[in-house]
Nucleic acid binder design. Structure first.
Lengths: 147, 147
DNA sequence: CAGCATCCACATAGATACTG
DNA sequence: CAGTATCTATGTGGATGCTG
């Protein structure tokens, strides 16, 4: 497999770098993964202060890239649910090391976990598989807050 | 450590997301890591067709974020060398899973490794520690090209 | 050699208002 | 509920030409 090579290629990343570099993309992938399925307005709440336009645009991009799946139910009022594709789930796992790096690096000058940030559920990452009983923590884990 | 938590926080990532989302940032971090030390013009060659302004801007951002270090030598003609800080080295490691994900995902629609890409050294990632004798491969590893 | 200055084109995100 | 339409502000990268 790839692990056997001592060299890798950035080329495949190029196609996706445009997507993951969008301001909200990783956050959206993360929060959908936190819940498995999420509706539009719930997504807005979870993300904090994103405009419907920006969320709509980004969701379309993520669908185009095959990272997010959209299920529309013909009901009144309409119901739409977003979930991660297999690729989306994998991406969410692949960014964990990046998260850990960001959480432990020494030269951080800008934002850390502050009270305002802790109020935004999308900033929390559920590493374990979601279950009925599992609830998201109301604050950042202490291990990170102490950084 | 962090591994013991079942939840993580995105907050620390927020500060850097602006940096790593810049078009050339990850590529620059990667290629400097490939060589340990690189000069400005060499960096330009390795990156393909980046303008000096863009390279200059991005390098400044990376320095401000504590990911890249700049060493200036008072010589004529002037010599400047860029290297990764400890954080930069760690970041370069942290993006490897992302690379692997991008290389193996199923729904890729856009760019893969093509001849044009293979001519750009910065797209290649040296996983092993650089040494005098180690040379970069002239093409992408087959395992990736076959995707 | 290693850049900076200037100008330009385009993409992205937000605010606000409106709709099937 | 789940968006769309429109406008605007800002960011980001590229081209070109010049400099210590």
């Amino acid at each position: 497999m790839l692990e056997e090579n001592t060299h890798m290629c950035f080329c495949p990343l190029e196609g996706v770098i445009d997507v993951i570099s969008k301001k909200w993309a990783l956050l959206i992938v993360n929060v959908i993964g936190n819940y498995e399925r999420l509706r539009f307005n719930k997504l807005m709440q979870e993300l904090g202060y994103i405009s419907p336009k920006t969320l709509s645009d980004t969701l379309k991009e993520l669908q185009k890239e095959g990272l997010v799946k959209k299920d529309t139910f013909a009901e009144i009022p309409p119901r739409v649910e977003y979930s991660l594709t297999k690729d989306g789930v994998e991406l969410r796992k692949a960014i964990i090391p990046l998260l850990k790096w960001a959480a432990t690096r020494t030269n951080v000058k800008k934002k850390k976990c502050d009270p305002a940030c802790r109020e935004i559920p999308a900033h929390r990452v559920r590493l374990a598989a979601p279950s009925e009983k599992d609830t998201m923590p109301q604050t950042c884990p202490k291990a990170i807050l102490k950084q």
